[in-house]
């Protein structure tokens, strides 16, 4: 087996995550799908790190995790406050920004 297989897996997971974002209406699940995409990216980073024989890819994956953590914190806070205001966690309900 060649480590390229990890990249194929990463691409697959990323696509599944992306489709999930498009299909799910529950904001929490949408967020999970975004996390899935970020993780797929991390896997690619780690694989590239191994392929190139240096640790920079891992550092990037590390930073991605930090940013993802920050994003989750803020995103979930937003979901909670939206839920408080509208009693709904559906992303389709927040559709006022239109004509």
């Amino acid at each position: 087996m060649n480590p390229v297989s990890y990249l194929y897996l990463s691409a697959l997971l990323f696509t599944i995550g992306g489709v999930g974002v498009l299909l799910r209406r529950n904001a929490i699940v949408v967020f999970m799908c975004v996390e899935l995409m970020l993780n797929a990216c991390n896997l690619a980073f780690v694989t590239f790190s191994r392929m190139h024989g240096n640790l920079d890819g891992q550092v990037f994956a590390f930073f991605t995790m930090v940013v993802a953590a920050a994003e989750v914190v803020v995103g979930l806070a937003i979901i909670v406050s939206v839920y408080r205001a509208r009693h709904s966690a559906s992303v389709d309900d927040a559709s006022l920004l239109k004509l």
Binding site: L22, V91, D92, A94, S95, K98
Partner: peptide, 10 residues
């Protein structure tokens, strides 16, 4: 422009 985030995401 239907206001749905998911349409924009598509």
């Amino acid at each position: 422009q239907n206001g749905y985030v998911r349409s924009y995401a598509v």
